[in-house]
Design a protein around this nucleic acid. Structure first.
Lengths: 131, 131
DNA sequence: CTTGACTCTTTAGCCGACTACGGACTTAAG
DNA sequence: CTTAAGTCCGTAGTCGGCTAAAGAGTCAAG
């Protein structure tokens, strides 16, 4: 069984343009074509596309996903793990940043009554504090 | 005392180009010019730029910062608070997303020995799982 | 057979926030 | 006075990941 690009898109919940974009980027291999020039995707294309989408949801960039796909086709487990660990660290850094931002925003909104004029508003005052 | 654009940039730890960009965007008012055409910033320009940078670090977009600056110059505290609360929610959503990503990445990296061939690597297997 | 949905390619645009470039002029330090 | 550093302006490029549009050809249902 083969998929048209539209069927494949539906199966992976992406857009057609996205699939063609992945092809241009080298993430999806060029599929065989029908006589008309239409792409005819074999079964494993869906699997590959799912891999890409799932990796993306975990925060991997398309370049990183490229690397993962190449390693999947023949690489060392250590290399895969290294990429995942690097991503984990990256996400933890972003979490730390966001948690700090949240703390400040929480503090600001709690201290602001939400009534009256802007003069003396704790939020504005906090934003005006240098450092 | 006045600042040249370079001095102002240094004071707020930004680039000169950034300041001119903020001017084009309407975040920084157009300063008076010397006879040569050079920008001469009054003292309060530094304050305003600090406000912008600090807001940015908290996750506000330049458009949101525009709104905050306008409210600062004459608005209701409720409007300020609404913007801050919206940003807080946005950040909490992003935190939730990242925490889910972290959990999956942690699980994957812990289950992967990091030794041997890719075949059977838990990370790859997880990425291949549909849904 | 018709018609509407699908697909093709190439090229360009979008988001946000800068950042760079080039060529000319001005200022500050020595 | 010299010279290096600063500044001017306008335009265009960057990053990542799509997304759109135009215009033509193709497929599937009725």
């Amino acid at each position: 069984m083969t998929y048209s690009i539209g069927q494949l898109a539906k199966a992976a919940d992406t857009g057609i343009e996205t699939i063609r974009y992945y092809e241009r980027r080298g993430l999806m291999p060029e599929p065989p074509r029908a006589a008309s020039g239409y792409r005819r995707y074999p079964d494993d294309a869906a699997q590959r596309l799912h891999f890409i989408r799932r990796s993306k949801r975990l925060g991997f960039t398309l370049d990183e996903i490229s690397a993962l796909l190449q390693l999947q086709a023949g690489g060392q487990r250590a290399d895969i793990k290294a990429i995942a660990e690097a991503k984990l660290e990256e996400i933890e850094t972003r979490l730390d940043d966001l948690q700090r931002m949240r703390a400040t925003l929480q503090d600001m909104t709690q201290r602001c009554s939400g009534h009256g004029p802007v003069a003396g508003c704790p939020i504005i005052e906090t934003l005006n504090d240098n450092e």
